[in-house]
Write a protein that binds this DNA or RNA. Structure first.
Length: 211
DNA sequence: CATATGATCCGCT
DNA sequence: GCGGATCATATGA
């Protein structure tokens, strides 16, 4: 199967527009040792400008510098003393918006991911932001990585996915911005369970975003 | 400096 | 469902 890599223009839109379009897209990882893995994006969350839940809300700091750079780069942060989380920078340069990758479905290289995770079973490999980063061996060395022009990690375009569910973000008590999106009914969603979806939509993917 | 906290995960109950 | 692990980061003294 031949797929096109997502172009910079895909990322250069508002986070809450990019987020649902990321669902179903394939994230490809080439590990430092050359092994390959790929996963299908199942769940994401958008973080925009003027968003109190965003790491960028209080301005640029050494940690979130990448968020204020050009779109299409990876923002990786370390949290809870033991987990890494990966984000895709969106919007315009210096806007400070991004989409958190929360869960995915293993496609290729499951053996590699089992090794990195120390756990078996496809449901336990990438179902959660910390798990996903660990399965793909992503850490702060990957902070700032270019998803469009770099090698090692990139996203490939796929046909439009099934129904998208929408809900509130994990750990964010706010009902106005329902910026958590996942593929409805997928068993690969993370266990940060905010309850049932508050809406289901069929979001047509822009023609330029599909092969 | 000191301290509070977190876009989490896991094991146990 | 709950609490512990474990530390970078941000903030205030």
């Amino acid at each position: 199967m031949t797929r096109r890599r997502l172009p910079r223009s895909f990322y250069a839109r508002a986070a809450h527009e990019v987020a649902p379009d990321l669902l179903g897209q394939v994230l490809v990882r080439i590990f430092p040792d050359g092994a390959r893995a790929s996963v299908r994006i199942i769940e994401v969350e958008a973080y925009g400008p003027d968003d109190p839940a965003s790491h960028a809300f209080r301005g640029e700091t050494p940690r979130n510098t990448v968020m204020f750079g050009p779109p299409g780069h990876l923002y990786v942060y370390f949290t809870y003393g033991m987990h890494h989380c990966m984000n895709v920078v969106t919007g315009g340069t210096a806007e400070g918006s991004a989409v958190l990758l929360r869960a995915a479905e293993p496609l290729e290289g499951e053996e590699e991911m089992v090794l990195r995770r120390g756990r078996e079973g496809p449901l336990d490999l990438c179902s959660g932001p910390g798990r996903l980063a660990q399965a793909l061996a992503v850490d702060r060395r990957d902070d700032g990585l270019d998803l469009v022009a770099g090698d090692g990690l990139w996203l490939e375009a796929t046909p439009r996915p099934e129904t998208i569910a929408v809900g509130t973000r994990v750990g964010v008590h706010e009902t106005t911005r329902r910026w958590r999106y996942w593929l409805d009914g997928s068993p690969f969603v993370s266990r940060g369970r905010p309850g049932p979806p508050t809406a289901k939509r069929r979001i047509p993917r822009a023609r330029s975003m599909t092969p």
